[in-house]
């Protein structure tokens, strides 16, 4: 498939004028850009105004060596058929970021709830951060890289004395 990235280039041109930043066209229909977390709401407002009205997901990854979380907002424009990935890095020890509920409403609310539960990120302005999947969870946020689920299950639920469960202790 060949494409001249016409629509993508128009968006990047607008971004350059508005924010003075260079984005990356990964391939047709994909734009990636990384920003500082303080700018998040400005960018989000502008992007929604530009037609990125569908929030596909909020995807968080844990970069433990850098001591950062990378938060990626996956936004889709029905008008231009472009997926815009807005990424920002936040501190891993004290993960706080502004909520995007004012822009993407209840949809953003549930995505933020999920990431609060799995990574412990505090979304400032989200009124209802309550567990979504886990029940009575006592351990650390389970999707962090330093959480070893195998070890956790061994400690909490298995017994090395039990003949049938001994296999879980052999690596």
């Amino acid at each position: 498939m060949t494409s001249d990235f016409k629509k993508e280039k128009i968006i990047l041109e607008k971004i350059k004028r508005k924010f003075g930043r260079e984005g990356i066209i990964q391939r047709a229909h994909r734009i990636w850009i990384s920003i500082n977390k303080e700018e998040l709401l400005d960018w989000a407002k502008w992007l929604k105004y530009e037609g990125f009205i569908h929030l596909s997901a909020i995807s968080v990854s844990d970069w433990i060596e850098e001591k950062k979380y990378k938060v990626a907002y996956l936004l889709w424009s029905f008008k231009d058929n472009i997926l815009f990935v807005l990424t920002t890095k936040i501190d891993r020890e004290n993960p706080v970021i502004d909520s995007v509920i004012p822009l993407w409403g209840n949809n953003a609310q549930s995505h933020e709830r999920e990431n609060w539960e799995f990574f412990g990120i505090n979304f400032k302005g989200n009124p209802n951060l309550i567990p979504l999947f886990t029940e009575n969870w006592q351990g650390p946020p389970p999707f962090r890289k330093d959480f070893d689920w195998q070890e956790y299950v061994r400690d909490k639920h298995y017994n090395i004395e039990n003949k049938r469960e001994r296999g879980y202790y052999e690596d």
Binding site: S56, A57, S59, D62, N107, Q109, S110, H111, E114
Partner: peptide
Amino acid sequence: YRVKVRGPSFSHMIP
């Protein structure tokens, strides 16, 4: 390193 799955039912069944 990381896989994030976006299921359509996530939006359909919650909000």
